[in-house]
Nucleic acid binder design. Structure first.
Lengths: 243, 243
DNA sequence: GAGTGGTCTAGACCACGCT
DNA sequence: GCGTGGTCTAGACCACTCT
């Protein structure tokens, strides 16, 4: 039994939200899991249904939980559609979202560069996995990506040379390693294509590319992926909406 | 007295939210206005305080209203800090937000191009105001902007040649024309600097620039500003966070 | 029909700002 | 001390899903 202090630890609903968050990020309730009903939780925790509801509302707003009327409340899952919708902001100039196809160029385990260790909050020289790949949009090579992961969190990944990696890595992280990407910070810049990248994209060196540096984190804020994407924006663009 | 139908027009709190939205976007409650207390509204509309609260919660979540405990609930204002925080995603590479300084190059009233008319939802050939300016970040010219507005909505703007325009146009729109920008859609691309833009930024033609095409809308969705910004991203970047 | 989330009510007490 | 929003409760009825 978990104790909720009456006024001590701040508002009750925040304590409830914290408890739910812990059960989710701790793995007790994996993605897709049906959590107890609001009434059950309320009775279990000795609070009213309204208080549980407010906590759940919050987590639904943060895409951590999903409600389904008549069925119950579930831990959010990164299915392909959702992952694309949420974490792939490249859109065709006609407004169409397109499914990218990936080709992995290399996948190695090696020591982290200093900047990578800093970004991923790892000790200097810790081992990382570095994946290089290109992604096609509408059957044309459009993105060159470099992805860096802490090796310790992804035990088998990249050890076998013949390993096939799926298009949407976030599903892989979730299904095989129990790591759910929950939020990300991106920095965007315009850069000139290097000779190597230009060759991969079939363009002239020096051509302008959109460079996206993304740091992805789990629900509890741990950084788990550093990704640098260089994107050709001749027929596609990065879409960003805000209020 | 406004009538709220009991089950006819959907959930009560949505009807309340719609009503509040109308009073705000209709100008009855301008930015900064203290709206009636939840209890007053509840009595006025014949619903419970909880229902009003839920409607207000929604609008607070959308940055339309701002609550202040002990004082009341206010219509959100575009002060300089908020405008910057919300609508200016360029950040120094050290993470610092910097206040941009603007220099207006030209400000003319002329017929809309076809693409502009389409984006702004205007009849073909309608008159627009076109503002060209540069913006400095850390005292270095960094952004070249072209801003297009429907001339009919901004009666005096750009008619006097000596007019001074403030750094944050959205404050001007709000204070002088009662037009509050509420949300925006942005498309980002990497482009090569034209000769003209390169000269303004003091860089070589062909250098990569981040091009941001923004369409800004009011609360009710009317498009009111089309803005194309070309940004030097050598010491700054576009920051985008998402969950 | 039983169980779930979705909406709505009425009322309580607390924390805060003002005067 | 009064009015405001902030939290919390207890209970009602509805809409939906499943069996």
């Amino acid at each position: 039994m978990t104790t909720l202090t009456t006024p001590g630890g701040g508002p009750l609903y925040l304590q409830v939200r914290k408890l739910l968050t812990q059960r989710i990020s701790g793995g007790a309730w994996p993605p897709g899991h049906l959590i107890p009903s609001e009434l059950r939780l309320a009775r279990e925790l000795g609070v009213s249904q309204g208080t549980v509801r407010k906590a759940v509302d919050d987590l639904v707003g943060n895409n951590v939980l999903v409600r389904q009327q008549g069925k119950g409340t579930f831990v959010a899952v990164h299915d392909t559609r959702r992952a694309l919708f949420h974490f792939f902001p490249m859109v065709g100039d006609d407004g169409q979202r397109v499914l990218p196809n990936s080709r992995v160029l290399s996948c190695r385990r090696l020591p982290a560069k200093q900047s990578e260790a800093r970004a991923l909050d790892l000790p200097a020289g810790a081992r990382v996995i570095r994946i290089e790949r290109t992604r096609d949009l509408n059957n044309r090579p459009t993105i060159v990506e470099s992805i860096v992961l802490p090796a310790a969190s992804f035990p088998e990944l990249g050890k076998s040379r013949s390993e096939r990696l799926p298009n949407t890595l976030y599903e892989l992280y979730e299904e095989r390693y129990g790591i759910t990407i929950h939020r990300a910070e991106e920095q965007l810049r315009a850069v000139a294509a290097s000779a190597k990248v230009a060759k991969l994209l079939g363009i002239e060196p020096g051509a302008p590319l959109l460079e996206i540096t993304r740091l992805a984190r789990t629900l509890d804020g741990t950084p788990v992926e550093l990704r640098i994407s260089r994107c050709l924006t001749r027929a596609h663009h990065y879409q960003s909406n805000f209020v």
